[in-house]
């Protein structure tokens, strides 16, 4: 006699989210952190035409009303025209306020003094210029800048420090890219925006996945296992390619500094955030 066998698979936690619950949770986050804690009912964000800022625009419009959301398109002269039109498509769909501020003159004005700047430096200058514009526009409109960085790019260090990561609130920073896609589809972000290959659009034909050397789908699953505490061998045992696991691990381990405030020399027993500890909302 041979009995049927029920064999437990190797545990691999799911990245699925319940989109209804996630939406309600993030709307409540925006209302509490903006209106209740900071007394600001207007949001301002850079609308790139990509999925992350599109999703944040949708969440802000739901949480605060579309009339209270200001989307700024900030193209550089090499930016893809489709980025501009996709951003317009999102703004039209939501009925939020939209304005275009071309950063080419400002960026080129500086780059005249940096003729040796390589594409990486130029990209960082553009990202920091966009943040400068966003914060100035936020003061003009008494609107709070809202961040659009997702968990995957934060963990991979795939962002410009003190640029993309500066807005004081961010509703999607604990969502992996694949979760951003799922939520964006649920909220009805236009198909053209959801389906196009993600790109920082700092250079022509650039895509995130070619920059990173791994697809988001794979990176997210590996990141999730790493954050849950699995070592590389345990992740490879679950069917992931060793070089990809090493790549993701290296990206996390070389970018911890990007997820922190600057390192400050501690010389007293009242050092801020070391001994003198107060929560951000106190």
């Amino acid at each position: 006699m041979t009995l049927p066998v029920v064999e437990a698979p190797l545990a691999e936690p799911s990245l699925e989210i319940n989109p209804e619950l996630t939406t309600r949770w993030l709307e409540a986050f925006l209302r509490d952190e903006m209106l209740l804690r900071r007394g600001i009912g207007r949001a301002i964000l850079g609308l790139s035409g990509g999925i992350d800022s599109a999703l944040v625009a949708y969440l802000c419009a739901r949480a605060l009303g579309p009339e209270n959301v200001y989307a700024i398109r900030m193209p550089y002269r090499t930016s893809s025209p489709s980025s501009l039109s996709d951003a317009q498509r999102i703004a039209d769909a939501l009925g939020i306020n939209v304005e275009t501020i071309d950063i080419s003159d400002a960026v080129d004005g500086y780059l005249k003094h940096a003729p040796d700047a390589d594409p990486r430096r130029k990209g960082n200058v553009m990202a920091r210029m966009r943040m400068l514009v966003l914060f100035d526009q936020s003061a003009r409109r008494n609107a709070l800048p809202v961040g659009t960085g997702n968990k995957t790019e934060r963990l991979m260090g795939y962002f410009t420090w003190h640029a993309d990561d500066t807005p004081p609130v961010n509703p999607i920073g604990d969502l992996y890219k694949t979760q951003v896609w799922a939520l964006a589809r649920h909220l009805g972000v236009p198909k053209e925006v959801v389906d196009k290959p993600p790109s920082a659009d700092l250079e022509a034909n650039q895509t995130d996945e070619s920059d990173l050397g791994i697809t988001y789908a794979q990176a997210d699953r590996i990141l999730n296992l790493i954050l849950l505490g699995y070592n590389d061998d345990a992740i490879v045992a679950r069917g992931y390619a060793a070089p990809e696991v090493r790549l993701v691990r290296r990206r996390i381990d070389t970018t911890h500094w990007k997820r922190h405030l600057p390192t400050t020399a501690l010389v007293s027993s009242t050092a801020i955030n070391e001994f003198y500890l107060r929560p951000v909302d106190f």
Partner: peptide
């Protein structure tokens, strides 16, 4: 602090 957004619709 609520965490865990997958599944049935309850945290």
């Amino acid at each position: 602090p609520g965490r865990g957004l997958c599944g049935t619709g309850e945290l």
